[in-house]
């Protein structure tokens, strides 16, 4: 049902202009770029390497925003309970959190989509087998998976990514399969099958594009969820190491300060997370509207 836009333009050009037609989304996109740039450049723009214990001293702990550190620099947004400059800590933390969130999201998505599509398309015994596996998987509390992995492998970024992938893939699989089953029943798939197109082509060229909308919805939710889950695991004491805190660890530590009057320790890491996740979601939202063939204006 799509109507072709009157102007002559490439599909990508149309995508870009559609995307930036929404001011809020543009804002989100710019914000996300800014955050990523800050995170990538962190070692060059922060006054302190918060992971180098030689540079951190407890004598700087819990200082309010604007205080001067012993080393001479100004702590723009204060310091945390062990003396880390919060600005430095947040940027370094962002690096870890983004890595964890994006890596785990992408891996889980690829895994989940492959499994979900296969289940929906093949159907029958394979389908029920896979979906039982998915059920099983979803019954596994993420805290338990993380705790087990930590015990076997030790804390660390790799392990938390692994844990988050294992926690998330089933969501994608379930959602993709749900939508794909409906799609499979539609005429265009039957038509494609009648034309004798290969399975792989039908799956990836015909069914998958039509599942994109829910995948993006789940994907944005899950990326946000991954970052939040990492924070939650840290809150429960089984996340990332304390000495190299991610954003999640900073928030978890900061939450202990909610009632203490030292608002900056709990508030700023939260703000950083909020901005990150909101910008990811704003972009994701707009992507969904723009990419969905059925929503074309």
């Amino acid at each position: 049902m799509k109507t072709v836009s009157p102007k002559e333009e490439t599909p990508f050009g149309r995508f870009v202009s559609d995307f930036f037609a929404n001011k809020v989304a543009t804002f989100g996109f710019l914000l996300l770029i800014l955050i990523i740039v800050l995170a990538v450049l962190a070692p060059w723009i922060t006054p302190q390497n918060p992971y180098d214990l030689k540079q951190v001293t407890v004598m700087d702990s819990s200082m309010p925003p604007g205080s001067e550190a012993l080393a001479g620099y100004t702590m723009l947004i204060g310091s945390d309970g062990v003396g880390r400059d919060l600005f430095s800590g947040i940027l370094y933390g962002l690096r870890i959190s983004l890595t964890v969130g994006i890596m785990s999201g992408v891996i889980a998505m690829i895994l989940g989509i492959s499994v979900g599509l296969t289940a929906a398309y093949v159907g029958g015994r394979t389908d029920s087998l896979i979906m039982r596996l998915v059920d099983l998987q979803l019954s596994f509390p993420s805290a338990l998976i993380a705790l087990m992995l930590i015990a076997i492998l030790g804390k660390g970024v790799d392990n938390i990514i692994l844990a988050l992938v294992i926690v998330q893939w089933a969501y994608y699989a379930r959602t993709v399969r749900g939508t794909a089953i409906v799609e499979r029943g539609k005429e265009y798939v039957e038509a494609a099958a009648c034309l004798g197109l290969p399975h792989r082509r039908i799956l990836f060229r015909h069914i998958l594009p039509n599942c994109i909308a829910p995948i993006i919805v789940v994907g944005t939710v899950q990326t946000a969820h991954a970052i939040g889950l990492e924070a939650t695991l840290s809150f429960l004491g089984i996340g990332l190491p304390q000495s190299e805190p991610s954003l999640g660890v900073l928030i978890a530590n900061g939450s202990q300060y909610l009632l203490s009057g030292k608002y900056w320790i709990s508030v700023f890491p939260g703000v950083a997370l909020l901005l990150t996740v909101v910008s990811i979601n704003l972009v994701g939202d707009q992507l969904r509207d723009v990419l969905n063939p059925r929503l074309q204006k």
């Binding site: 924070a231 809150f235 978890a252 939450s255 997370l273 909101v278 979601n281 939202d285």
Partner: peptide, 29 residues
């Protein structure tokens, strides 16, 4: 509608434990 959508983004942007503590802070304390 935009307000609803933006709030919904806020809704899942913050970790549950943080929101829970804030709720206690605001509504109880």
């Amino acid at each position: 509608s935009r307000v609803i959508m933006t709030s919904s983004i806020l809704g899942f942007s913050l970790p549950t434990f943080w929101v829970g503590l804030m709720m206690i802070l605001i509504f109880s304390v």
